[in-house]
Amino acid sequence: MPDLGLEVLWRGKNFVRLLGGLWVALRISLIAAGISVVAGILLGIAASRKRSVSSVILRIWLGIIHIMPQMVLLFLMYFGTTRAFGWNLSGETAAIIVFSLWGAAEMGDLVRGAVSSIPVIQRESAEALGLKPFQVYRWIILPQAVRRLLPLSINLITRMIKTTSLVTLIGVVEILKVAQQIIEANRKASPNAAFGVFLTIFVMYYLACRPLSLAAKKLEKHWR
């Protein structure tokens, strides 16, 4: 068996530190994902009306989010708000805000697309039955839209978890940074540690994202 430098994981608190880093990454991305889903649904419904003010706002917002690398947004939210407004957001708060802005815009666009893809006559059919507008969304449009956007939103959330590695730029130490620290601290003693540590991270990411995709698969099967 090749030397993967796995022994560094058992030195001191290294393994617990990695788990702690994973928890930071998951905490940021899952809180942001939760906010994104709720905000995205409201935004997406509002924007699904053609030529509405909200659809223009969403398009501009999305444009900005797409042009700007997340790294830039993190810098703006963390350092920029201090310079401009004197706010002192913690790195983690800034990260959650940026990821929520990003997620809500993308989620909003997914919801808008999914809602718009439901044929108009489905809505009319529900309206003709005397359902109120809210009931039409609650029972007819959203359930159908959610089925269409489920795979895409799972994809978005896993992308979010992966992108959390950028938050190290605003001082938040998450799993990849911890990994880097462990590898660097042991550069001489265990030069191969990088393999073992990254392999471990890979497994941790996989185990963290697995329940998500499993749940999604189960739902999709249930709906088929």
């Binding site: 790294m71 703006l76 920029g80 401009a84």
Partner: peptide, 28 residues
């Protein structure tokens, strides 16, 4: 590219602070 992106980020942070004049005078 990462370096360029960070340069862009810093430029934007600067621009933002120029636009908004309410910035605190003493940061330290």
């Amino acid at each position: 590219t990462i370096r360029n992106i960070i340069a862009l980020a810093i430029a934007l942070v600067l621009a933002l602070s120029l636009v908004v004049t309410a910035s605190a005078d003493v940061v330290y």
